[in-house]
Design a protein around this nucleic acid. Structure first.
Lengths: 206, 206
DNA sequence: GCAGAACCATACGCCACCGTATGGTTCCCT
DNA sequence: AGGGAACCATACGGTGGCGTATGGTTCTGC
């Protein structure tokens, strides 16, 4: 053998991280329920014996996988956003765009909100949710909205985000299809969510 | 025995409808996966023998349950809405309110969007989704928005609705708590989603 | 008041998965 | 080189669910 170490495609021995990676992969494909020890072992070309050496049980793997995902996910989003200049309006818009495309990309996220009730998932999800809503609300305050409205707007924006994610999964046909149409819709969303209302008092259109 | 017939609390013989009702109940409680024949039988105080007399298999029950739910659900919403006067703005607002509270009520709906991928669920969900988006888009057109914007607004509104439903499940703590706060938030949502934008062209706030 | 249909109970075989036990390999250190 | 630790394979028992088989019970028409 020429190459030893941890990076060859056919590694002889597995680390817990390998199992976590595989777990996240199958979560993305088939949801939480798809994380089964024996199939995973097969997928990794090994056996349960390996698994139960590295992990206490299935739940431990789940927890580890969720922890790693949460870390990477939040890190990715916030990092991307905070280094995006100081203008809160720009940052908000960037956040919306980023998170929208991410929602259609990260199928782990989608799988998790599909299993929000699971004891291992719930805390992760509430953490992420509240943190993001808070973050967005702060952005709205920075823009100049009063605290209460900032929170409302944040809630609405986050709801729209979650729903969009769901739509992308359950009825993608309903979403704008072409590249240009998608872009126009996104623009519409950003504007609607971030623009102050026209006339206070009477909001009735013609 | 004094009372015979089909309405006593302890009925001797079961109908498929009884099974469907029970199925919907456990879907509401524990999701699709909770629909298991043996536990259901136990819950109904009977045995699998009964079940497999009335249904081909578990999937048949699922399909029947979903069909009944879809019927009742769409009927409830559209009926409630169409007999609500002719003013499209009023109807839209009423729809939003109605559907928002419904989302926190009907746990079957929530359970279903959590299992949107399931072959028995997907068609039901896409039907409901597209139908509602279309309906809402028509409402926006009636209000006076051009077709494209009407569709965008409808999409956004529906996304927000879906997301709100998810939020109510996975992080209810993030939603407005008190009765009054909830009401104010709802008002905010309705206004934001239905009010035409202030200035075309420049949508940049101060 | 009984025959046949409708309905239900029990027992069984099957499968997929979890977790354990136990004995092999392979590595690493000296 | 050889011994212990790290790692993996295989076999096993257990559980929970699906679907079938087969015989029992209740209802209904005549």
């Amino acid at each position: 053998m020429v190459v030893a170490g941890t990076s060859a495609t056919t590694r002889r021995r597995l680390t817990p991280q390998d199992w976590v990676t595989a777990a996240l992969a199958v979560i993305a494909e088939g949801g939480l329920a798809a994380v089964a020890v024996e199939p995973l072992a097969q997928r990794l070309g090994t056996s349960k014996g390996s698994f139960y050496w590295h992990f206490e049980n299935r739940d431990a793997l789940l927890t580890a996988a969720l922890a790693r995902w949460e870390e990477q996910y939040t890190a990715a989003v916030t990092a991307e956003n905070t280094r995006a200049g100081a203008d809160p309006v720009q940052r908000l818009r960037l956040l919306i765009r980023r998170v929208t495309t991410l929602a259609e990309t990260d199928s782990v996220y989608v799988a998790l909100i599909a299993t929000a009730g699971h004891p291992a998932v719930a805390p992760v999800l509430t953490r992420i949710t509240e943190q993001r809503i808070d973050y967005t609300a702060a952005l709205f305050r920075d823009i100049g909205f009063p605290a209460r409205e900032a929170r409302y707007r944040s809630l609405l924006a986050y709801s729209a985000h979650l729903g969009h994610t769901e739509l992308a999964r359950s009825a993608p046909g309903a979403l704008p299809r072409g590249r240009a149409d998608r872009e126009a819709y996104l623009q519409h969303v950003v504007t609607t969510l971030t623009t102050p209302r026209a006339l206070r008092g009477s909001s009735r259109p013609a």
